[in-house]
Amino acid sequence: MEVKDVLSKDRIIFNLDSDTKEKAIVELSNILMEQGFLLNKDEYIKAVLQRENHSTTGIGNNIAIPHGKSNSVTKSAIVFAKTKKDIEWESLDEKPVNLIFLLAISELDQTNGHLRLLSQIASKLMDDDIVLGLQKTQTADEVIKIFNEGDIEL
């Protein structure tokens, strides 16, 4: 199991245009839909927004990790985006967001390695060095490399 199994190059976007949290979530969900990870886009977006209402996913350091768990997700996956403009996300540290990790979590693969991988990627975002590295990335390969180098083993 490798990072690219959940975060592949075609789901890493630079220069996302959206200027609000909602628009960004919709925009990135479109990508998941196009790539066949969602059976029902609206249902998935609803799950993500519900999670946002529960408490913010802006974890500080200009990062947000919106996520939705729904049986309309066929396979767990991540979309990563860097935004052109800073987006307000009511973050824990009150800073705006420019790095977004949208997680699609399938109800079907509860014990499967994908979830574990998602968890490991999320916990890596607590590492300041990783965040610093992500802010510097300019290509999809570099993003994947950052998560790979940190010894994600399964």
Partner: peptide
């Protein structure tokens, strides 16, 4: 050798 190795994109988990 540090110079030739290029940028430290390799960020490692502490």
């Amino acid at each position: 050798s540090i110079l030739l190795r290029g940028n430290p994109l390799v960020v490692e988990d502490k």
